[in-house]
Amino acid sequence: MHETLFYIFAALTLLCGLLVVFNPFSRNPVTSAMFLVLTMISISGLFVLLQAYFLAAVQILVYAGAVMVLFLFVIMLLDLRESEQRRLKTFSTVLGLAAVGGLAAVMIGTVKHAQAGAATAIGETRALGKLLFTQHLFPFEIISVLLLVAMVGVILLSKREVE
């Protein structure tokens, strides 16, 4: 069961991820965004398999539910229909492919021998919360400042010109 689900979700993740970047059928950014949503959801599925239920929910809630809506919103607002009519430069594409291929080879080569400890059931929301609010309270507070900054920044960048 676990294996099957893993392969399903993994395949979905990679397929959708690839379709975000390379879509032979459509160059529409909305399509990319939608596939990105699917990727997020599949990753959330993988999180569930890893028994990180809290993060799976957060992943959907934040990424799929908020971040991607924002993306979609912006794409629609700017009406980026045929954003990529320009041709991709062959040279840079080939270069990029080569570089990324090399990186992929290195990373996969490195990572495939990773060793597994024996997994036990963890991932309790409660434990996570405890950790977050005791030991890692400081980064938590920093993150809150970060969100404030983002808020101020977004308002500054997008509010109407005041004369």
Partner: peptide, 14 residues
């Protein structure tokens, strides 16, 4: 490390 670097970076975006 990550959190503080991001605070710096995001602030500098703005």
């Amino acid at each position: 490390l990550f959190v503080s670097i991001e605070l710096i970076t995001v602030t500098f975006y703005v």
